[in-house]
Write a protein that binds this DNA or RNA. Structure first.
Length: 884
RNA sequence: GCGGGCGUGGCGGAAUUGGUAGACGCGCCGGACUCAAAAUCCGGUUCUGGUGACAGAGUGUCGGUUCGAGUCCGACCGCCCGCACCA
């Protein structure tokens, strides 16, 4: 095949340095012209879908963002070479708060700001040479995308997966606006500084809790997910079996309640109960507050903090004694005081607990503060009863019941069962006193956001008909363009006419829903949309089902729970509503580490970007100064690359100075991909030296090699065979490393192969041998194996070696098993568990032979000093250990 | 506060998952080439003692299991991620 003229070698003399600036742009346009990364839906090859979590278009991309795309690209290019039809798309998670903040600060329309950022970032990404099918690109703020999302919402509504409930939000009383948790700092609004209040709002929820059991069970099937992510999701879903117990009030509570219901997973500790606690949001708390001013003040106090669980749980435990009492179910005459307590969450169980201080840390902290009794009722076996006390630390371990009447002597599980059995059989206020219950920590997903820059929720509120869905024909509900950000709060709500609409049912004057959807909704199905990005329905089920699941998903560990769980839920909901037929969205998951960089600060504390800094090392001490003024600069801690710390490096300057290949190579070298990598100028230089080294090797050898595709080999010297062995070992090892996403190891093996080629090259040559053939094989393998990492250099080198086809069109090399087999192996020889020598044995030596050889070894004789060995442990192929 | 993870030379890390601790790279030291420098090439580089062969110590700290522990178990220290309205 003839190459287009633009691809003719730019370098003629082999001594010239490799110039990535020209070369990279050129190969990128060749790939583009040939449409190599387009993936047709009707391709007979097996499919492979590789996806990296799509970016938020925050402004400019920095090199830190590009690490996970580089990983994905290595996988994509590798799979293509293995004969797969690879889907590797890119898009933009484009709704969200930063666009609104920019609008307020800079008077830019969120839409304009977002699309301008996307344009910039797309250009930046393209510099990196990723093998992406750009024809499938979309942004979640595209009308085309959010229109389909509204369709999904309405289908979910029909399927009973949408609910309307009340939920708390952070309210800034000065700005008169709802705040996100991250906008609440130490209980105050980030802009106004006002003390945040909690407000109840009626909002839209997706019924993820209906799938709690299934989402939990199916975790077992996700074999190619990191264990830690599965564990985190398991804990998050938080299935627990327990008992709902109905405590009787002594007397009547406000509002006429006779019963206080609690949920507990520890009914065995019932005899250790010393108080009851209600959530400040419990209905009974409100009843009490209606007539009790102090209770009202306490609840108000609890509500003067953010709504996040973190804020609730890190606050010092406090409570208010309501004066109410409940009867202990088993102890006649024993009454337990009822508190309202700040650490009890309304969202879990019944919003009320019985406190057993000895066996729950939160209860203990609370009891110690209010002088409530602490009675240990579960005692570890190894401690005597008289010695067992609980003071500052609750006892959570196993043991036997004490101080517990009929439970005494039982184990924890047995006691739980006994309490359940007895209470179930007893009636209070016309119902059994207890019932077994399975509870989940997972709550329904509140998707309402009081913001402009999001997907409008396609509902209409009518005075008579209630909440009515927008009719199919009226979709999409578009965001209005003429909005103002002069005031905080939701511009949709303030808009003079947008929300005015006729009720689709009765035709009366009605009002649009002004809340938009949580941006997590946008990212919960984008992976499915990529399979048919322009379709007039959310998906084309046959196409989506053929491409999905994503074979390899790559993204940050910070998404371990919410994004991944929501996507798993959406997959089920979309299957339920006929848009997909799929069990799980992501068959393989990999969580990559971040790119971190030193920070630099001027004496006044202002951050400086790396390009304005010169770092010097004098007698082991690194010192930084300003590149222009020479003024000293403080080297700060190493942190995640971020705009605010100004410790970013852009793709442009890397592309300009070293080339994308150097950056790609460096980011995957050294650090294992799941861990952070520290970007440093020295590291980049090192990677670039390797690029130049490969170029010298290839151009230096090209003229003297037999032509590409020569038959062979003829006679080979010992050294030639050694090089062939090294080549085929590298093919095996690099392949395995990429398969397992251990890119740093793959790179180490490639270094090794390059070293072996250099050693072979500098050795004595026997003219009667086909050394050039072995050398060509080694160089070609090296180029093909590094192709996924440094695709531009690989193409250029491949061409220099006389090939017409592109690396991007060439099959992955295969290792020859005959060259991988070793006839002799070297076993480490230990004496008493410490390595003393190496033992060279035949590959198929028997255990007895190895044992004899070990005992005969000089070092064994020396260490045993004539005593007979007590034991010889032989692990075939691994190790020999002589125990003396 | 709760949940999850991580910790190995001067530095990034490797170690076939219980079997040679330090692969590979960076840095540093020495040498070659050069008028010189850069670039490049070759050699060395965990620590301690020894000219050396070699010996001892060593994977955050303390303890345990094992013929054998970076890897498994327990306690502690430090750092990172998440906690439902950041994306």
């Amino acid at each position: 095949m003839d190459l287009p003229p633009t691809t003719m070698p730019s370098m003629t003399a082999s001594t010239e340095r490799y110039n990535p600036r020209n070369v990279e742009a050129r190969w990128q346009s060749v790939w583009e012209e040939r449409g190599l990364f387009r993936c047709p839906d009707d391709d007979p090859r097996p499919k492979y879908y590789v996806l990296e979590m799509f970016p938020y278009p925050s402004g400019r991309i920095h090199i830190g963002h590009t690490r996970n795309y580089t990983m994905g690209d290595v996988v994509a290019r590798y799979r293509r070479a293995r004969g797969y039809n690879v889907l590797h798309p890119m898009g933009w998670d484009a709704f969200g708060m930063p666009a609104e903040n920019a609008a307020m600060q800079n008077k830019v329309h969120p839409k304009e700001w977002t699309y301008a950022n996307i344009a910039t970032m797309r250009d930046q990404l393209k510099l990196m040479g990723f093998s992406i099918d750009w024809s499938r690109e979309f942004a979640t703020c595209d009308e085309e995308y959010y229109a389909q999302q509204q369709r999904l919402f309405l289908d979910f509504l029909k399927a009973g997966l949408v609910r309307r409930k009340s939920a708390k939000v952070n309210w800034d009383p000065v700005d008169q606006t709802v705040l996100a948790n991250e906008q609440v700092i130490d209980g105050r609004g980030w802009r106004s500084g006002a003390l945040v209040e909690q407000r109840e709002l009626t909002q839209w929820f997706l019924a993820i809790s209906d799938y709690a059991d299934e989402l939990l069970e199916a975790l077992k099937t996700l074999e190619r997910w990191p264990e830690k992510v599965r564990i985190m999701q398991e804990k998050w879903i938080g299935r627990s079996e327990g008992l709902r117990i109905r405590f009787q009030f002594a007397g009547t509570a406000p509002g006429g309640a006779e019963i206080l219901e609690v949920f507990t997973t520890r009914p065995d500790t019932l005899f250790g109960a010393s108080f009851m606690a209600l959530s400040p949001d419990h209905p009974l708390s409100a009843e009490i507050a209606a007539t009790d001013e102090k209770a009202r003040a306490f609840i108000a106090e609890c509500q003067r903090r953010g709504t996040s669980a973190e804020a609730v749980e890190t606050a010092e435990k406090s409570g208010y004694d309501t004066g109410l009492k409940v009867r202990h179910p088993f102890l006649d005459g024993k009454l337990l005081p009822v508190y309202i307590a700040n650490f009890v969450l309304m969202g879990y169980g019944t919003g009320a607990i019985f406190g057993c201080p000895a066996h729950d840390q939160r209860d203990l902290d609370f009891a110690n503060r209010y002088g409530l009794p602490v009675t240990p009722v579960v005692k570890p076996d190894e401690v005597a009863e008289a010695d067992f006390t609980v003071l500052e630390e609750a006892y959570l371990g196993p043991g036997r019941l004490v101080h517990s009447d009929f439970l005494n002597g039982m184990g924890v599980e047995e006691a739980k069962e006994e309490v359940a059995r007895r209470l179930e059989g007893r009636q209070v206020a016309g119902a059994p006193q207890a019932s077994r219950e399975v509870n989940f920590r997972l709550r329904d997903w509140g998707i309402s956001r009081q913001r402009y820059w999001g997907c409008p929720i396609p509902m209409i509120h009518c005075r008579t008909c209630g909440a009515v869905p927008v009719p199919e024909a009226d979709l999409p509900v578009r965001l209005p363009q003429d909005i103002d950000f002069d005031k905080p709060g939701n511009p949709l709500d303030r808009h003079p006419s947008w929300k005015d609409v006729a009720c689709p049912q009765c035709g009366a004057q009605a009002r649009r829903e002004t809340d938009t959807m949580d941006t997590f909704v946008d990212s919960s199905w984008y992976f499915a949309r990529f399979t048919a990005p322009r379709a007039a329905t959310p998906t084309v089920p046959e196409i989506a089902n053929a491409w999905l699941p994503v074979d390899q998903y790559i993204g940050g560990i910070e998404h371990a729970i919410l994004h991944l769980l929501y996507s798993r839920f959406f997959t089920r909901a979309m299957t339920e509503t006929g848009h997909l037929d799929l069990a799980e969205p992501f068959a393989g998951l990999f969580t990559q580490g971040m790119v971190v960089h030193e920070t630099y600060r001027e004496p006044d504390g202002a951050f400086l970007p790396p390009e304005e800094i010169v770092v010097e090392e004098k007698s082991g001490v690194r010192q930084a100064r300003h590149a222009k003024t020479g003024a000293p600069v403080e080297i700060g801690p190493i942190e995640k690359m971020s705009k605010s710390k100004r410790n970013t490096v852009g793709p442009e300057e890397i592309s300009r100075n070293y080339g994308a290949d150097t950056a790609r190579w460096f980011m995957l070298s050294d650090s294992p991909p799941e861990r952070d990598v520290q970007w440093s100028a020295a590291g980049v230089e090192g990677a670039h030296r390797f690029v130049q080294r490969i170029w010298r090797m290839v151009t230096g050898a090209a003229a003297s090699l037999p032509p590409a595709g020569s038959p062979g080999p003829g006679r080979l010297s010992e050294a030639d065979i050694g090089l062939r062995r090294a080549t085929h070992r590298a093919i095996r090892d690099v392949t395995e490393a990429i398969e397992n996403l251990r890119f740093n190891r793959a790179i180490a093996f490639l270094h090794d192969l390059a070293n072996q080629i250099a050693i072979h090259d500098s050795g004595d040559k026997d003219d009667s041998c086909d050394s050039g053939w072995a050398q060509r094989e080694a160089l070609e393998s090296l180029i093909l194996l590094m192709g996924p990492f440094m695709p531009h250099l690989a193409e250029e080198a491949w061409q220099v070696l006389g090939h017409d086809r592109l690396v991007a069109e060439t099959d992955w090399p295969e290792a020859d098993p005959a060259l991988l087999r070793e006839d002799e192996i070297i076993l480490p020889l230990q004496v008493n568990g410490k390595k003393r020598d190496d033992l060279k044995v035949a590959r198929d030596a028997s255990v007895a032979e190895i044992e004899a050889a070990a005992l005969a070894a000089e070092c064994v004789q020396r260490f045993l000093e004539g005593r007979p060995a007590r034991k010889v442990i032989v692990v075939p192929g691994r190790i020999v250990n002589v125990v003396g």
